[in-house]
Design a protein around this nucleic acid. Sequence first.
RNA 1: GCGGGUGUGGCGGAAUGGUAGACGCCGGGGACUUAAAAUCCCCUGAUCUUUUGAUCGUGUGGGUUCGAUUCCCACCACCCGCACCA
Length: 835
Amino acid sequence: MTENRFDPSSADGRWQRAWDDAGTFTANSDSDKPKSYILEMFPYPSGRIHMGHVRNYTMGDVLARYKKMQGHEVLHPMGWDAFGMPAENAAMEKKVHPGAWTRSNIEAMKEQLQRIGFALDWTREFATCDPEYYGHEQALFLDMYAGGLVYRRSSEVNWDPVDMTVLANEQVIDGKGWRSGAEVEKRKLDQWFLKITDFADELLDGLGDLKDWPDKVRLMQENWIGKSQGLEFSFELSNGAQLPVYTTRPDTIFGASFCAIAADHPIAQELADNPAAAAFIEECKRGGTTAAELETAEKLGFDTGITARHPFTGEAMPVFIANFVLMDYGTGAVMGVPGHDQRDFEFATKYDLPIVRVVASDVAQADAPMGSEAESGDGVIVNSDFLDGKSVDEAKAEIIARAESGGWGEGTTVWRLRDWGISRQRYWGTPIPFIHCPKCDIVPVPKDQLPVTLPDDVDFETPGNPLERHPTWKHTTCPQCGGAAERETDTLDTFTNSSWYFLRFASQPADAPFDPAEIAKWMPVQHYIGGIEHAILHLLYARFWTRALSHIGKFDVKEPFAALFTQGMVTHETYRVGDGPWLSPAEVKIEGEKAFTLDGGDEVERGRVVKMSKSKKNVVDPDNIIANYGADAVRWFMLSDSPPERDLPWSESGIEGCYRFVQRLWRLFGQYDAAASGEDKALLRKAHQAVVAVAEDIEALGFNKAVARIYELAAAAEKAAPSESRNFAIRAILHLIAPMMPHLAEEAHAVMGETALIADAAWPAHDPALLVEDEVTIAVQHKGKLRDTLTVPKGASKDTLEALALGSEKVQRSLDGAEVRKVIVVPDRLVNIVT
RNA sequence: GCGGGUGUGGCGGAAUGGUAGACGCCGGGGACUUAAAAUCCCCUGAUCUUUUGAUCGUGUGGGUUCGAUUCCCACCACCCGCACCA
């Protein structure tokens, strides 16, 4: 090695081309090696790769390269989640076509990804806005329709009257459209839905099999699905009608003292000609929906004058319209049991309704007065006629049994999960492949007419959905009767695009969405890596699509992602002068504890360390960093220090440290001396231990620990004198870093005279005999403190250790003549002397 | 409000019942150099002590144990998710 510095600016590109030319990372599904499908959540082509992407894809890349070294056939693909609103926003602001904007972003971002040297199979790349992709999606959608999983019904949307468009909930800010600032209206539109609720039970039960998912994500999904079991029954009302209610606490039925219905409940709507009732209903609708407002919102009600007859006591209970009852959960009506439900308690207190105890800690406490809040805990039923003395669970079962045998109610399961509304009144998405015919109603587009492609000549100058306004696009003929008809102008929610892309990566026939034989080879994804922000929607939808497609016979896969990993964010300090605009790190110079602007020299306030974001301007552009330090230093930084599930604070000194280490390794590799001889048992042992430990760390995604071990082995190898053992250690390090710093590894590998790519090399073998030490250090404690350490042969007997420990001068000094009452010896670990 | 998580040097963190602070960053000292960069070596939790060393120390307070960062109970702080779900 003549040059003693590693030059990423020449090496990185050279090796990237070498991998590309050799097709090193092209997955071969016919291989008989064990298969590993490693996937990171594909990016939205916003324009630039950011550090969060780099961290995400580096982790996946290390796994992919490592698995390959372990002899697996690896599928590690990349593509683009390319439909979505930002493209339409760009179209409006910059007067560019959403497609053109998206395509150029993809091109730029692909180049950025390639500069980082990711081991990706680019032959399988696609964008969800490719007509082939969304055409197959339309076919799958039609199959799901045929399978009874798609339906249409009228549903409320947020309507922006100025932009003439439907807004997503996140686009409604304080009740106003985010762009127009206009007061948002509720409108009823006919919308398409997917029957995800048919799978609620399966999706919930399936979570139990996802052992390699974070508990947190499983729990979030569980809560989102929100299964609850109870009783649905009807009260007879004084006006002759029936009022169905749902309760999870049928055991407390004798404590009911009122009924409450939602403001948009049909019974409430019937009262709308009463001005006082109408005014109250109006007030309920106006109520804010922010967290703070809900928390402080007072329970309010309107007495309808109607009464409900208690099924057991026959008592007449008032029926209120109440602001805390939701129409879209249960039946939109509840029985109020103030003693044992906090909301009911507050309501009853305000309106002076009876608060009866029906659950107590024991029977003797039946008449204990209620406190200042409801008691929702367990106990024994009291003041409840035939239920008295039963446990809560027994009483629940008893009431449900009586309701069912008496025919006035039944045990029911209620879900929080709603069907998935997938209609979007937007241009840049998958057209929903249906035709509205005046004669034949709704007709699916015949499969041989797919894809239904988006028109290119669209206009974003006028408000509203461009597909709706397009002069010709929607006009077509009915496939059934041949008469004039109109295309559906709604497009699919972009979450549908990401609900099956992993299947398309695994196999890409031209004439079908996927090939079941290929799916069987690759699925499920072995490691799926992405941000926690997708813990609920994306992951639930992808699980649902996989089950739905299995259900209609497309293949046999229950869960798409065997293991899920949610990585932390990349964070950075924030900067601003007083209340001024945020400053980017490039606009600030740090001097000791303080920071100043580059130009004026004003002191800058160093703010909280938060996720890198455009709005706070605390971003660092990966391109600049790669240009300065090379891809390997950046990759190494992404893996070092912070555990991968936690946030990673970006620091300039950190990346410099990584760059120094790249150079340090380069010098170490340069010291490889094929002619060296002799054994260095300690170093050899360390190297073998590291080979095993780093592999374990990578498999557990403990990249920060793997990094630390490599530092340790490198330091030991640097200090050692040349020997065969040292050569082994150096070659071991070269292979251990290959998944993490692949360019450096290839370059050094080549300089050592190897002609093959290290990307194709095997993980180093280890000698199990060298994993165990023959000497161990024993800690000697007295009074819970370390007093001395002993170096002894491994496996020394308890008696030997005890004698050695008591013989220690330091121990004797600490004992100071005290009587030894007990000696605890843990072989190969420690001796603890108790006095 | 409900659910979950986190809390260890100046900073990121390691150790999940057995030597607390591995490894990295920052900082200090030194070597090499005409000088600088680069590189290498040493020190680096706190307090006391000339040294040997001693004491304290993993958010706080208790408990279990020969031994607790680790297990249990209570509390505090911060973060995340859901949110009037009957």
